[in-house]
């Protein structure tokens, strides 16, 4: 038998399958959420199970998290992303005391106690700046694929200045940088700095303590991670499964 965690976010749904001993992630899958959260959650889980040659009947427990978590009929329990990301981050890096999670529509910073429990957390204000959505909008404005966005800015010495206050205004700033002939890599680097500045202020609010781990899809963007490391003066651990941290946490809580 297996256990599963499903994290249905605003942009993507992630599922992981663990053995019943909950010691290792055996398979994982990610699909776009689109308009039907439950369907996306089950689709991701279906893919993860198929990788193992397993079926839903092989699952002892399914726990969901993320914005769509309560839509997943048939899950055994659900928890908010805060506790799931904290739990998942500790699983990926047991020394974690600070978790920064940047997802599609919100970003959060969590301070964990020595026992791994959430001691404090803050989430972004009612604003998309500092979230994955910000990157998405900017990638679209620059005609760059989101997956390549991070690498584009590596080695840039003079990032363009982008206001970090508002996604809509920042987009028009990007357009004016483009119009003035600024190299694309410098604009991309500026965008990374802008999002990192927002996230850094969240992290400082809960207090940054090593080890710092970044979770969520934006953790895969080396440009944002690098900018955030410089701003916080701490190195940031990123695990290849960073995007699955919430789903892993949910599976561990099953």
């Amino acid at each position: 038998m297996y256990v599963a965690g499903v994290d249905i976010g605003s942009l993507t749904a992630k599922a992981v399958v663990l053995g019943e001993d909950r010691r290792a992630v055996l398979s994982r899958a990610l699909v776009y959420t689109r308009w039907d959260a439950a369907a996306a959650g089950w689709a991701a889980l279906g893919e993860a199970l198929a990788d193992l040659g397993a079926a839903r009947s092989d699952l002892a427990r399914v726990v969901s998290t993320g914005y769509g978590r309560r839509k997943l009929d048939g899950s055994d329990a659900n928890f908010t992303e805060i506790v799931c990301h904290a739990r998942g981050a500790r699983f990926l890096e047991p020394a974690t005391r600070t978790v920064v999670d940047v997802g599609g529509q919100d970003s959060k910073a969590m301070a964990l106690g020595p026992d791994g429990k959430v001691a404090d957390f803050v989430m972004n204000e009612k604003c998309a700046a500092g979230t994955g959505r910000f990157l998405e909008v900017m990638a679209h404005a620059l005609g760059v694929d989101l997956a390549e966005f991070g690498a584009l800015a590596v080695g840039v010495a003079d990032p363009a200045r982008i206001s970090s206050t508002c996604t809509v205004f920042a987009e028009s700033e990007v357009v004016s940088h483009v119009a003035s002939g600024r190299p694309r890599a410098e604009i991309v680097a500026g965008i990374h700095e802008a999002i990192a500045a927002r996230v850094a202020s969240l992290a400082r609010r809960v207090g940054v303590r090593d080890a710092v781990m970044m979770t969520g899809g934006v953790a895969l963007n080396v440009g944002v991670v690098g900018a955030l490391e410089r701003m916080l003066g701490h190195s940031i651990a990123v695990h290849p499964d960073a995007q699955f941290a919430g789903a892993i946490g949910a599976a561990l809580l099953s």
Binding site: Y67, M123, K126
Partner: peptide, 26 residues
């Protein structure tokens, strides 16, 4: 929690409820 006492345009229900649930869970 960010909101406004009577201007509901300043309020995001999904975000606010998510924060409350997370807070109570912790």
């Amino acid at each position: 929690l960010e909101a406004d006492h009577t201007d509901s345009r300043q309020y995001g229900r999904a975000q606010a409820e998510e924060r409350i649930r997370a807070f109570v869970e912790t």
